[in-house]
Design a protein around this nucleic acid. Sequence first.
DNA 1: ATTTTTATTTTGCATAGCGCAAAATAATCA
DNA 2: TGATTATTTTGCGCTATGCAAAATAAAAAT
Lengths: 370, 370
Amino acid sequence: MNTITKQNERRLVTLLRSKGPITRMQISELLSVQPSTVTRLVNDLFMRDILEEVADPERSGRRGFPSKLVGLRADSFYSAGVFVDPGTLFTCIVDSHGKLLSEESRLIVDRNFESVFGHAGRMIDRQILDLGLNRNAFIGCGISYPGQHTNKPGKVLRTTYLAEWPDIDARTDLEPFFDMPVHQLNDAKSACLAELLFGICKPIHNFCYIWLSYGIGGAAVIRQNLYLGERMVTAEFGGLFPKSQPRPSGQDLLDTLAQAGHSFTRLEDIPDALLSGPVVQAWVDRAIGQLRWLSLVIMRTFAPEAIVIGGRLGDPILDRICQELGQMETLGEDYAIGMPAFLRAETDHKPQLGAAALPVYFGTSIAEPA
Amino acid sequence: MNTITKQNERRLVTLLRSKGPITRMQISELLSVQPSTVTRLVNDLFMRDILEEVADPERSGRRGFPSKLVGLRADSFYSAGVFVDPGTLFTCIVDSHGKLLSEESRLIVDRNFESVFGHAGRMIDRQILDLGLNRNAFIGCGISYPGQHTNKPGKVLRTTYLAEWPDIDARTDLEPFFDMPVHQLNDAKSACLAELLFGICKPIHNFCYIWLSYGIGGAAVIRQNLYLGERMVTAEFGGLFPKSQPRPSGQDLLDTLAQAGHSFTRLEDIPDALLSGPVVQAWVDRAIGQLRWLSLVIMRTFAPEAIVIGGRLGDPILDRICQELGQMETLGEDYAIGMPAFLRAETDHKPQLGAAALPVYFGTSIAEPA
DNA sequence: ATTTTTATTTTGCATAGCGCAAAATAATCA
DNA sequence: TGATTATTTTGCGCTATGCAAAATAAAAAT
């Protein structure tokens, strides 16, 4: 694989992903390096087929050496993603822009760890073959599933749904199934990376992600870097809610519906009629109040520019939550600092995109120094 | 001033401050650089009188080239600190280890901004003269006072006590009074830096500081770096408490005592007898419950190794709070990750030390890359 | 049509920083 | 006294990058 290792190379790639194609002069200013350094950097990455020049539509009729835009090539590398829904296995291949090139899903009948990842590996292999891609054009494979990270570095707590799974280490336990570098993060943190690299957060340097799925997860991005701490247990927003009422998770929604006589196991199964009905609406109203409080906590701790709402609750609910939070004038009584932007996640429909974002993030991004 | 600019120089200084004197081999390993690089780095800093060799008491009777310890020189530079208590001006000079070389305080009679900082500048000048120090051996002067940072970069919100003050920018408004680089941060964040550089947190890379003074402030240190975000309004823990009961601030303690018939304006005026009496004890009990909840919030967001308790509430109260929090088995019902260490701040008796820590931090520390 | 002006990009040169390998050093051990 | 050992330094070369001058390709002026 065509690895991007140098400090300034990664800074450049991160910049271009965030800004889209820009001129060499802009690169020079934004990276605080000399134009000559940009030339060498860019030429080197051209030769390695990582960057390309694209026509500048705005640039015409102006004096001086015509500037050309430099951008990331979509086909500079590819990434594979595996998302393990408790009942279904989702796999996909994306290009370096995060465009979904192929996807394949499969019901999980045998929940055994070896069985699941054996299938996942074969599904990825098949897709690479079908797309006619070169295997070593792959920067890696990302694995994601619901669960809370433990203190052990590189391990993810087994979920309640997959209770028989062992604590899994990406390198030793998963790599044999995929024959490429493997990265692993839980669903919330992976989804957050998909927004950062491929979605609505591309231009945003500091944000927090509230992941509303069957459970509630979260992630914080600081200076375009996922904040993991040393134990990966940071920004676990689900655990913050007071126990006086149930936290506004998808599981709680299912429970609420069940109590009203509508039993479903999966969030996707809730019919639209019910989603716009009074039971769900009342639940959403309560959730918005709770999430407003959570947003206050986030602003008092991380104080990000934006709070991103995403998850698997579905568009009707998440859109409304995001919209109503965004219209609020304040988050609390003595809340004096400005309101964050509330953004609706773009990539949460396909959690396998989050998984595919992991190798891109760990393989091409970098922390800016303070 | 003998500035420390190079990346590895700052990494080395940060390392030595954190670890104390260590051998060149240890430096090589801990910084992941070649021994030869250490030699050059260290020799360069020797010549600039920033480092010194100290005898290794443990190293004797062992084979091989005897290793000598390399440490920071106490006199490599000095720093000045100004802390503005609403009623009193505290100034000090410290050496590079944070040892207090001199201090001077003065009641504030004229609260006018120019008057206060005019006095502060002259007090610092006098102390430099008295100590016989060279003015350009100073890395800078730190200014600290209670208040919440605003969104405007480099500005500190004027406190309620000093309401007539304008928003102050360190560079433009304060530098004229001191004739050296000036840095400015509120009381909580400055105190946090004093613990990081001079106090109990020297060996700790990730911690959060709960500052219990007349108000409640906070700060977060991530990988030995103060986390300020872009607006400096991060980790404002005081704003997190539910409004159902008053937040456990010094002001609340004074109010509580006043209601019990004991009126004081300053926390230092509370007599010991009262501090060990039932009114204060009951207040502390309530405070511990509230701070336990705050600690849970901190662990769910920043998930630091340690939570540090400091402020101006005085030793009897703060010691007890810290001790009781540290003995708890859990922070909440479904709290599954390990307990943080609860540490009692060492430098909070002298908030001017926090101010003096600012130039040291901004002038010699560095963020480690992720 | 040619020259000038302009903004952008590239080239040549110099230097700082650091890795690698070999040498030097100062102690203990045989 | 010489061998062994751990640590530190020296010599060499490479890479990344800054700086200044040159080259480039367009518009504007002549």
